[in-house]
Design a protein around this nucleic acid. Structure first.
Lengths: 196, 196
DNA sequence: CGCTCGTTTGAGAGGACTCAAGGTAGGTGG
DNA sequence: CCACCTACCTTGAGTCCTCTCAAACGAGCG
């Protein structure tokens, strides 16, 4: 979902700065706003009592989040935190609904966004069905950074820790597995940067 | 999503019997239809090369499936198989769109369905963030069979194998964990039936 | 009764996790 | 230009626990 910034502003949306590592909202709380990233990057994740975190998504500028909970009036099923200094637009449900009323075409965009998210989350199950670290990493890479026809490898803009937090393994396991995958030529590692 | 059976029929939907264990469609194939369960039960799952399966959902009568892939024209991200003798209605995308054209109110239902699915799948991440079998089972039970105010325990209508396939553990691990949870009074087991 | 499907228990191996320590790149400040 | 700092990456050793494989038990049904 990406609603024009000017429209959001015109209907009462407010831009807000969030510093790196600031929480935008927390798992289990009641949703009150629609959020859209203007600048920076926001991470959606859930955590357990040990402080371990599982990443559900990393959102770049232009992406929205929190809609499903807002529409359903169910509590947030994940937390949101800025991973860089960011700017996000916040708008209440009422005002958002006004936008949808005046711009009915947006409904199609909403359906598409939600369908994409369902499809994406479904694809992620590939990570969980396979207990072998190497397969998990492969699934993760293929879902998030699918190979194009050309054999060009793309750089993966994530830390080892972030990859670990996506697939539910420890950093050390990810590192050791990546080394093995590099030797098997399944990925490339140049100057500590990962290419798939 | 639940579209009236008569409408589906009127617009060209076809009822089809599927025997227990029959595949409705397979992961990775191109979606061609919208599906709705009339009778029986359908399981959505993905599998790995070892034949291990991970359940993404069990659909009772009245539930639809396969919409996101259909709308997005992306390949199915899971397989669908009847777990009981079932009847499902099948209708092509074109015909489905005719229904949406003539019954615009259904769009709201669609948005709600998709939002619910996103929210549900988000909740499931609780299973993966926690490496401890007991916590996984607790998360699974709480997401799918949430405790009501009353302390009445509900029977969980799943086999141990199905639970294992939901949370990505082996049957034996699930069984051993459930025994421990029973001793800790976190669940009840009466005559092999599980109550939460 | 005997079959089938699901549940249960046991013993052993493998591998991810844990904890601890060191290495390296990039940025900052003097 | 260099020393330092911080964040991230890497390696090692040992423990724990899930998986694996095998076998037996129990319930429901024709």
């Amino acid at each position: 979902m990406n609603i024009d910034y000017n429209i959001l502003r015109a209907y009462g949306g407010v831009a807000k700065k969030v510093a790196k590592d600031d929480l935008v909202f927390e798992e289990g709380t009641t949703p009150r706003f629609f959020y859209q990233v203007i600048e920076g990057e926001v991470m959606l994740f859930c955590s357990n009592t040990d402080g371990k975190e599982l990443i559900q998504g990393l959102l770049a500028a232009g992406k929205s989040f929190g809609e499903p909970s807002l529409f359903l009036e169910k509590n947030h099923s994940y937390s949101a935190r800025a991973v860089k200094d960011s700017v996000i637009v916040i708008i209440t449900k009422d005002k958002l609904l006004n936008i949808f009323r005046d711009y009915p075409n947006l409904t199609n965009a909403l359906v598409k966004t939600l369908a994409e998210r369902v499809h994406y989350q479904s694809s992620l199950f590939k990570i969980w069905v396979n207990p072998i670290p190497e397969e998990k990493i492969m699934s993760f890479l293929e879902v998030n950074y699918p190979k194009t026809d050309m054999n060009e490898r793309k750089e993966i803009p994530l830390t080892r820790q972030q990859i670990a937090n996506y697939i539910g393994l420890r950093v050390e396991t990810v590192i050791r597995t990546l080394v093995r995958m590099k030797e098997a030529n399944k990925v490339e590692i140049i100057n500590r940067k990962l290419f798939y």
